[in-house]
Simulated scan of single mutants.
Amino acid sequence: MEQTASTVSATQSMAGTNNSGASATTVVPSGPYLDFLTDYHIGDHAGMLGLLVSVVGLWLTYNEAKKSRTAAEAARDAAKDARRGRLLVDVSMDLAAIYDQLVRLKQTVRGDEWGSISGQIDALCRDLEAVRQAMLDGSTPDFSDSECGVVADASAKLREFENLLTRKNAKPPNDAKSEAALQRQVTIPLTTVIDSVTSLQHKARLISGKR
Rank of each mutant, 00 (worst) to 15 (best):
D145Q: 09
R132E: 12
V109L: 09
T187W: 04
N63S: 10
E113I: 12
V55S: 05
V109S: 01
C148A: 15
G85C: 13
T17Y: 06
A24K: 12
G21A: 13
A96Q: 13
L128K: 08
A71T: 02
L105M: 14
S30H: 06
W59K: 14
D127R: 15
K106N: 14
L102K: 02
V89Q: 11
C148K: 09
K168V: 01
W59E: 06
T140A: 15
A82D: 02
A15L: 09
L60K: 13
R110M: 12
P173N: 08
V197R: 06
L158F: 01
L128I: 09
Q107V: 01
Q183M: 03
E147F: 13
G85Y: 01
A134W: 03
G119E: 10
R76T: 13
H45Q: 12
D195K: 14
S146Y: 08
G21I: 04
A96M: 05
L49C: 01
V150H: 08
I194F: 08
D35S: 14
D77S: 02
R167Y: 01
G57V: 01
Q101S: 15
D112L: 03
D44G: 12
E2P: 04
A154G: 05
V56M: 09
Q183N: 15
H45M: 04
V193Y: 05
R132P: 06
A71Q: 13
A156D: 05
A78T: 10
G85L: 10
L58C: 11
V131A: 15
Q107T: 13
L158Y: 02
S23T: 14
T11L: 11
N63A: 10
V109Q: 00
G50N: 02
A10S: 09
V28T: 15
A204F: 00
R86P: 02
V103M: 06
D145E: 11
I121Y: 12
K80E: 02
I121R: 08
S144R: 08
V27Y: 05
I188L: 14
S6A: 06
S23R: 09
S116G: 11
S146C: 00
P32T: 11
S68D: 12
F161N: 12
S92L: 04
L95Y: 10
S139M: 03
R211D: 05
V89H: 02
A78E: 15
L182T: 05
T166A: 06
M48G: 09
Y33T: 10
A15V: 10
A22C: 06
T38N: 12
L124K: 13
R167H: 01
D127T: 02
R104L: 11
V193F: 08
T187H: 02
Y40Q: 03
G57A: 06
L164V: 03
V53M: 08
S208M: 07
R184N: 07
V55G: 07
K106L: 14
C125P: 04
P32M: 05
A97P: 03
L87I: 08
D127P: 06
A176Y: 12
